[in-house]
């Protein structure tokens, strides 16, 4: 619809811009949690625990999925239908694998006696990783739709489709980087504070 065509000298599509604005918003929510984490951590009575290694493996999986999705987008633009479809599917599977690994990670924590309603160190870990996982689920939903389109619709590259795919890819990179920052933060804070 023409309402959405940019009119003033703008190089950025309004939808992409709106996505970035919402990403700023999500970032602020996690900054709020991280600040609360730091303040609470500094107040003492904080029970340290080691993060199960599953969470590090899942991080690697997530990074790989970001990479394959990026490649898929490149193939799409280059009109390489086969690798576009294949890489998209791979990314989707890796994304789902990430959520599964997070879930098993939580089970492992639980089995070690780190309860949600125990010491705040655990509560914060569940809250932050859980809220992040919700955002990942949003990304998976978007990728599902994209995969569905890829396999159902006839293949052609149009501006509209490229933009849509671009939005999905941008969001996925965002939740990926967000997780890296979160896990590094939680891992490192005990050495610096």
């Amino acid at each position: 619809m023409s309402i959405k065509e940019p009119r003033y000298e703008s190089t950025f599509h309004p939808h992409k811009f709106a996505l970035w604005a919402s990403l700023c918003s999500i970032t602020m929510m996690f900054i709020g949690l991280i600040s609360a984490y730091i303040v609470r951590y500094a107040a003492g009575n904080w029970q340290e625990f080691n993060i199960p290694s599953l969470f590090y493996i899942s991080t690697v999986v997530l990074v790989i999925s970001s990479f394959t999705l990026h490649k898929s987008y490149k193939s799409f633009v280059a009109e390489d239908e086969k690798s576009y479809k294949f890489l998209l599917l791979v990314s989707l599977v890796l994304g789902i694998a990430f959520v599964a690994m997070q879930t098993f990670g939580w089970f492992e924590l639980e089995a070690r006696g780190i309860e949600l309603n125990g010491n705040p160190s655990g509560s914060f870990f569940y809250l932050i990783s859980g809220l992040h996982a919700l955002h990942i689920l949003g990304g998976i939903a978007a990728m599902l739709v994209a995969t569905f389109h890829a396999y159902k619709l006839p293949f052609f590259v149009s501006n509209k489709r490229r933009l849509r795919f671009d939005l999905v890819v941008s969001y996925w990179h965002f939740v990926d980087i967000l997780w890296i920052i979160l896990i590094v933060f939680i891992h490192v804070i005990r050495y610096i504070l």
Binding site: M29, G32, A36, L116, N117, N119, P120, S123, L127
Partner: peptide, 21 residues
């Protein structure tokens, strides 16, 4: 506003899930 949401989330957990934020 998103920072308020993070406060609300913690409040909801304290109310419903017995966390101690």
């Amino acid at each position: 506003f998103p920072v308020l949401v993070s406060g609300f989330l913690m409040l909801m957990m304290d109310r419903g899930l017995e966390t101690s934020f």
